[in-house]
Amino acid sequence: MRAFSTSARAAGKTAVSIVPPVHHTVKFRKSQLMDKYASLQIPRSSVTSPKYRPQRTCQDRVREHHINTVESDMMLITYAHNQQVLVGNKPRPRKGDSPYQLYQPQRVPYGGTQATKDIKVRSWRNVPMLEAITINCFVKPATMNHDLAAAAKVMLQQITGEKPTSVYARTNVPSWTLRPGMPMGAKIKLTGQPMNQFLTTLTEIVLPRSKTFTGVSNSTGDQNGNITFSLTADDIRHFPEIEGNLELWPQTFAIDLCFHTSAQVDPEARTLLSAYGLPFVGKERYPARW
C-alpha cells in the first residue's frame, strides 16, 4: 500500500501515503542544490539573503494608532463576562468497528457540510488586528487583448508600491474565448508598512473623493473575519500615483480588496476596520454564535 518512491505515481499509485505516519514528498530540482544557489536557501529576513528588503523604514502612523488607541478599545468592546469556548461544527469520526471504515472519510458535521472554527475566549492575547490586505484585479477583456493584463499589473504596482503577481485563467470556456494559461490580471498581498500606507491612502484620499462609494456593505464577510469590497475603475483614478499623470492611464481597472483580520467573527472585523476609517452601511448582521 505504501509508496514513498517517486516512481509510485508513474506506477499509477498515490505518491503520498495517507496512512499515518504520513511522509510527504518534497519536490526539488537537483540543480537547486548547486553551490551557487546556496544563498537562495537563506531566509529572506536575513540581511545576507539576496532577497532581503528592509521592513521598517519610517514611522508608521497606522501602527501607532493601533497600539495607542485601537488595541485597548477593541479589547474592551469584545469583552464579555463568563466567556466560554464555543466549539464549532466538526466532522464526526467513524466508530471504527468495521474494517471497511478504515479508509473512509469522516462523516460531515451536523447541520452542514463545512466544519466551522471554535470561537476562543477573547483576551489580551487575541485582540483583533489587521493582518493583510489582498488586492485582486481580474480583467475580463484581457481574453481579447493580452496587454490589458500587463497594464493591470503595472496599475497595482503603481498604487501599492509593491510587486504584484500575474493571475492566469484556469478553465477553458470556448464561448468566452477563454483558455487555460491566458494572463487575466494581477494580484498582490500587502502586509506591514506597505499595507498601512495603502490603507491610509485609501481611507483619506481615495474613498472620500469617490462619487459612487457610499460605504462597505455590512453584509460582506466570510464568517472568519475577512471583509471584502471592490473599487470601480473610476475610483482608481483618485489614487495620487495615477492622478499625478492621468495621460498615462487611458484605462484603469476595477479591483477587489480583501481585508484579512484576526477577528474571529465578522462584526468584530467590521468594528476594527471602522476604527481605521472605513465606513460601513446597511443593517448589521450578527452570526448565530459568537
Binding site: 528592509p54 521598517r56 519610517c58 514611522q59 501607532e64 494608532h65 495607542n68
Partner: peptide, 22 residues
C-alpha cells in the same frame, strides 16, 4: 487620542535612516 506620531528618539531616528538608505 494622539493626533500625530511620537517624536522618535535619536536612536530610532538613526535606525530608520539606516533602513531607509538601505
Amino acid at each position: 487620542n494622539p493626533i500625530v506620531t511620537k517624536e522618535p528618539s535619536a536612536f530610532v531616528k538613526a535606525f530608520y535612516h539606516y533602513q531607509d538608505e538601505l
